[in-house]
Design a protein around this nucleic acid. Sequence first.
RNA 1: GGAGACGUAUCGAAGUGGUCACAACGGGCUUGACUCGAAAUCAAGUAGCCCCUUACGGGGCUCGAGGGUUCGAAUCCCUCCGUCUCCGCCA
Length: 425
Amino acid sequence: MIDINLIRKDSEAIRQRYLKKQKDIDFTQLLQWDEQRKQIIATVESMKAQRNKVSALVPQLKKQGQDVTATIAEMKKLGDEIAQLDKQLAEVSAQINDFMLRLPNLPDDDLEAGGKENNRPIKVFGEKPHFDFEPKSHIELCQSLGLIDYERGAKLAGNGSWIYTGMGARLEWALLNYFIDSHIKSGYTFMLPPYMLNYECGLTAGQFPKFEDDVYQISNAEGKKFMLPTAETALVNLYRNEILEESQLPKKFFGYSACFRREAGSYRAEERGMIRGHQFNKVELFQYTTAEGSDKAFEEMVNMACGLVEGLGLHYQLSKLAAGDCSDSMARTYDIEIYIPSMNVYKEVSSASNARDYQARRGNMRYRTADKKLQYMHTLNASGLATSRVFPALLEQCQNADGSVTIPEALRKYLGGMEKLVPVK
RNA sequence: GGAGACGUAUCGAAGUGGUCACAACGGGCUUGACUCGAAAUCAAGUAGCCCCUUACGGGGCUCGAGGGUUCGAAUCCCUCCGUCUCCGCCA
């Protein structure tokens, strides 16, 4: 949520900023509601002041033996009018609130305007591998090496689900352990959040109300929850409705969770295999910072995520996303895109974003500065990393002519020193 | 799954229709006094949101959340959320 005062002050300037995201937003109606709201408040509150005054008087008058029937009748009438106005106020407030909740974050000023086509690579690590043999796709490798059972995955849970089997499961787990150990070394606190979250969590993260259909909803007699699409959704809610001291910031966390996404209608033929599934594993970095501290934190988290891919020796590029390609809640986003040889494309393995105070406003998360002022925190998140694309990139980039795959040095200690994955008979 | 208890400020806790909710009482914290300093003691101060106001200031809302009854609700009623205790079941 952005500060409504920005719109009150200069709605045209805000409109211009959203145009960079290719969103033309009309604030006329909002400003009308806002005026209406203020008027109602002014009226109803003076009426309430009157009621409070008289109500305090009633017991005194009674004590003095005076007849208060007329006063009470008057107050009943006033009470009815107040109820009427309160209802109107609730309605217009709900409209304002809904409008504000659906408004995306403002893009940082230094971002390119426009969509995906204006994303800019700002760093490249390594280079495209050259094979003097016909390289296999990760799907072929997963099958020949016995890492993934796609068919039975689909049998169990439908399209977009797979089973890590044997060495595949061990490799997946090794990746996660490698990520986790690295973040612990960086001083981040390890968190294992619940996978089923309540509605408020989605609201604070910025997932709801706009994108309720993107997640799996669980509904039964006990109530309604949803499966988290990323650990960020849980971690961003840690301090919902809390006030921290400035000295407690920054807070640095990372969480592991399986992530669940419907990905409805997004299935594409070239994304066969494990590129886009309904469930995948991800370690997520998360920070709460002061307003002044978030730029530094952002750099730190981007570097950490890059370091993980570099530690595996895999070729990737870092892209600075154009305003329109940043997700709705984020003021800026850098993507780490790893190279997948069989597709000859770069696929996102990490998305690092600064939400600034957008999520903090939604979740009412503030801190008290040294001079006792209340301010909204800044929240940042970065995947560190999602395995579902590292895994195929690793297989494809590290494959050998004999059909084996060389395991990156950094992972070997998690695999009992194993150096190669070899085809199963 | 069965039975019960509870949710009040930073914490403990009183209040069970208007007279101690502009939140008692106690602890903590901050500042000041006393002190060489500390302890002890004394004094003052210790939420947030919204509206009006250049300001000073004024007003409204918040006792887990939402709704209801009432002229008036922390207090009575309903729904939901959460916590705890006991029993049952279970990894």
